[in-house]
Amino acid sequence: MRLLVIPISTRQVLIYARPLGRDLSKERSLTDKVTQKAAETWAKWEEADKGWKKHLVSWGNRVQQRIPYQEWGLKSIPSLNSQRRLDPSYGTKQVDVLFPGNAIRSERLRTMLRAIATERQDLHRKRMMWSFLAAPLTAPIGLIPIVPNIPFFYLVYRGWSHWRALNGSKHLEFLVEKDLLNLMSHPGLEKLYAKRVSYALEHTQLDKPFAEMVENVEKSDDKLLLRMKDAKKLASILEAPDLALEAERAIVQVEEKLKAEDQKNKDDENSSKKDT
């Protein structure tokens, strides 16, 4: 496994775990097999022209887009136990962490990763329990002929999703606490972020030294760094095809959040002017 840290804005990052080739070649767990089967079934349903399958897929895709990108990122990190099944020596060697050294200061990265690992654990634990406890209450819906018990499957899916994110966060916390992170600034990411930082921040030249560029990032307000087209670039640079979708989702969510905050600030400013 290799961890990828992708700054979406000057204040918000996406973490993503890319499995190594030798990991993928190992025997998959039962959970992985069930997940793969569900993905294949969903893909078939997406081909439906009409009917409940088409409506369900349309609704499901919208729901997935609303799931926080932080949850998706943590879900990409396998559980510590699954990694140890793949490699009994796992936990004794460092894990590479790739990041752009001109957008994130390496000295701050461990603190950032510790926060990512711990700040959402209680949320995922509570929502996981709530989803699994509420799912059986939807059983009567399953008695209706033809119509699938959508609430049941949704609650089970959300419970499973929170369970995966919780395991991922605990795994990341283990790596941070045991000092098993090998921080590596990636040249390809440095090249991409040199352009994005210089574009997003005024008075930041493309050829500025890394130390000055990352200092400008730290001093700035929260500003979007990536564009939608960068998602596929990232996937190519880091040889992680699935990263493109995760990056696109994160870019959309962060952009919407920043726009909402900007609009709120403008509304507050206008309100203050009216009061005076």
Rank of each mutant, 00 (worst) to 15 (best):
I77Q: 04
T35S: 10
T111V: 10
P148M: 11
I116E: 13
S271C: 09
S58E: 15
A103E: 05
L20N: 11
V34K: 07
A38W: 06
Y90M: 08
G91L: 03
L24P: 00
L20V: 12
N270E: 15
Q12I: 07
Y199C: 08
Q253E: 07
R196E: 12
L30T: 05
D32G: 06
R164F: 01
K229G: 11
T118Q: 11
D49Q: 13
Y157M: 00
L137S: 15
P140A: 11
G60Q: 08
M184F: 09
A103R: 05
L166S: 00
S220F: 05
A211P: 01
G73I: 01
Q121V: 02
G101A: 08
S169C: 11
S58L: 15
L226Q: 02
L181T: 12
D96L: 05
L192E: 05
D49N: 12
I104L: 13
E190P: 03
H124V: 01
K233V: 13
T35H: 06
K219W: 02
M228D: 08
K195L: 09
L14V: 03
E177S: 15
L98T: 00
E215C: 00
A250T: 01
I15Q: 01
A43R: 14
Y90G: 07
I251Q: 02
R22D: 11
L226F: 01
L243N: 07
R28V: 05
T41H: 11
Q205E: 15
R127L: 14
R249E: 00
K257W: 01
T111G: 15
P88W: 09
L56A: 15
L183D: 03
L4K: 03
V57P: 02
S106L: 00
Q70C: 02
L243C: 06
T92M: 06
A117F: 09
F152G: 02
R249M: 03
P19A: 13
A165P: 02
Q12K: 12
I251L: 00
I8R: 08
L80V: 12
